[in-house]
Amino acid sequence: MSVTTRNSLLDRVWEPFRQQPGSRRALLLMAPLMVFEFFVFIAPFLMLLRISLSKQVRGLPYEAGTFTFEAYSEVLSSEFFHGLITYSFKLGIIATLLTVVLATFYAYAIWRSEGLTRTMLLFSVVLPLLTTLVIKTYAWVPLLAPRGTVNELLMAIGVLQSPIQLVPNTTGVIVGQVYIVFPYATLAVYSVLSTLDWEIVEAARDLGASRPRSFFEVVLPQAMPGVAVATVVSFAWSVGAYAAPGLLGAGSDRTFAIEVETQMLVGFNWPVATALSAIMLVLMFVSVVILYTALNSVGGDVSHGA
């Protein structure tokens, strides 16, 4: 296609937009994404709510056209579901704590390093981030198995006399889950750190602050927005963990996500599956808002104090 015919084609495409004011054109550019988000994100959630308010019926996923709070009261009143929800939140809290502490440290190390070291450290988080959850979970099986690498190693150096049970076990679930969310948390903290000026830290050191002290009193408060994002992401994904407890956990390591999958695809009880999802979304939303506000206010106070 020659340049002239291409240009005349471009002119023809432009013709219908000529009359529109500039800001309207900008809206037109955003329209496809807005339409997409409405039909593939917002509308599906309204549908989810509607189905969670349907009657359960044997042989069908749900009974269309019915309206009842039955599924909600079933989830809210049963010991079994309470157990699932508590376990999910426990897993979420432990995995998040471990992840955020380690990730903040690692992000700091990346920020402080240069050249090849920095590239290698960044690479070590980007590659696992772009690797499927299935592999990230499965990779821990040969490592943590009773006759696996970790046990053999610990026995060889004499720490252990006999292999310990790491998978299937809660330990395995936590290790796997931390491994899954760690790259996201690291990059969230790193992207905030990389906007900071190292000279502020130097100044604190010149004034006599020790290195750990300058980290906790100068770097950390400034990195707080990144830490808050890292916490929220780790928490949301770990409470909703599916792959790690599914493959590395024992029967007792049952999260709500696994139960939702079972109810949905095996039990064909859609009202209970959707009601459980909706309840978890609300609980998670509330805890995320509390967490986020708390972390950001901590960051603010400390930076004013320092």
């Binding site: 959630f45 549908m47 909703g240 599916y242």
Partner: peptide, 19 residues
Amino acid sequence: VIMPLLIPPVILGVTLLVY
């Protein structure tokens, strides 16, 4: 636009399956 990344994939999966 960010929200879908913060919702556990299992919940998104259920929601989209129903829809």
